[in-house]
């Protein structure tokens, strides 16, 4: 049983960044903009979040409050960075894939440059401890308490909160409906008076905010508040893209996909601690490959019916209506 607790406790901090970033990708793609730049946006958010933590860590502010403020900082910086994508993809009608790739390339190099210049290292190292050993009251609930409210991070609750908000915005508001329309048939949306350019800017900006926050949560939950230009976010932005497609561009399915992937990844990294798997004597590397292979297998079975947003990747040009 302790193994199950252990896996769940370790899985959630990994699943949350994936979930948030994939949700961000969903907002962007459902508005019609392919967002390959998620990796870069994540790293940008993680960098500024960690930079903020670095400067504030000496003050006596509670770590959980720092997470909250850092989250705002990271979300805001993600938003700023995503504007580079929306400017190129919406206003300049540039190729969205190319722009995304360039934004991904820029950030690791810029972080290395900045860190080498100012910190003489490859990234930012902070000494903050964000870990929550046990949530008061809730942590004492038998079973559930141990699973979700012990040895965890604040990011888990925040991430689920953002999921709820996303579902409501996406399905229950006029804004969400309009956003989805712009990804399916922007001409039709425009003909009923929706400003397609604005909605696409909004979609990419939301993905910037969620991507930035996701990056910061990755840095908090997986890297202990540090950021490194070499390893970056270890391809989590790309994995989030996979999770988004796996989740069929729908929020709840994205949650399940993120949990699935995070579970296998956690399993892969904790094989040594699980006596049953350890005794099998299989090379650990196989487990590390497992999340990727499993995703491939699942996609192979589910993708036949897969339907991407119809207008995704096509710059909207009013003149071509």
């Amino acid at each position: 049983m302790s193994t199950v607790y252990y896996l769940i406790q370790n899985m959630l901090p990994v699943a949350i960044p994936l979930l948030l970033v994939a949700l961000g990708g969903m907002f962007s793609e459902r508005s019609g903009i392919v967002n390959i730049a998620l990796e870069g946006i994540m790293l940008f958010g993680a960098f500024f979040g960690a930079l903020f933590v670095f400067f504030i860590q000496k003050s006596q502010i509670d770590p959980q409050v720092i997470i909250l403020i850092g989250m705002v900082v990271a979300g805001f910086s993600g938003l700023i960075y995503s504007l580079l994508l929306s400017f190129a993809a919406v206003t300049m009608k540039a190729n969205q894939t190319i722009t995304g790739v360039s934004l991904n390339m820029l950030i690791p190099a810029a972080i290395l440059l900045f860190s080498k210049m100012f910190f003489n290292s490859d990234g930012i190292t902070t000494n903050m401890n964000f870990y929550i050993r046990k949530v008061p009251v809730l942590g004492d609930i038998p079973f559930i308490g141990e699973m979700f409210f012990q040895k965890t991070y604040l990011t888990v609750v925040l991430g689920l909160f953002f999921l709820v908000i996303s579902v409501i915005v996406f399905y229950k508001t006029r804004f969400g409906l309009r956003l989805r329309a712009c990804g399916e048939h922007p001409q039709a949306a425009d003909s009923v008076g929706i400003n397609v350019y604005f909605m696409r800017y909004a979609g990419v900006s939301i993905s910037g905010i969620l991507g930035g926050i996701g990056g910061f949560f990755y840095s908090v939950g997986v890297l202990d508040g540090n950021v490194n230009g070499h390893t970056g976010v270890a391809g989590f932005g790309f994995l989030a893209l996979a999770v988004m497609i796996f989740g069929q561009w729908k929020p709840i399915r994205i949650l399940l996909a993120a949990l699935f992937f995070a579970f296998l990844r956690t399993l892969a990294y904790s094989v040594v601690l699980i006596p049953f798997l350890d005794n099998l004597g299989i090379n650990q590397t196989y487990y590390k490959m497992l999340p990727y292979i499993a995703t491939m297998v699942v996609l192979a079975f589910t993708s036949r019916k897969s339907r991407a947003p119809k207008a995704e990747g096509i710059p909207y040009d009013k003149a071509l209506r």
Partner: peptide
């Protein structure tokens, strides 16, 4: 299988 090549 119609799996997006970016992901694969």
């Amino acid at each position: 299988l119609n799996v997006n090549e970016v992901i694969t």
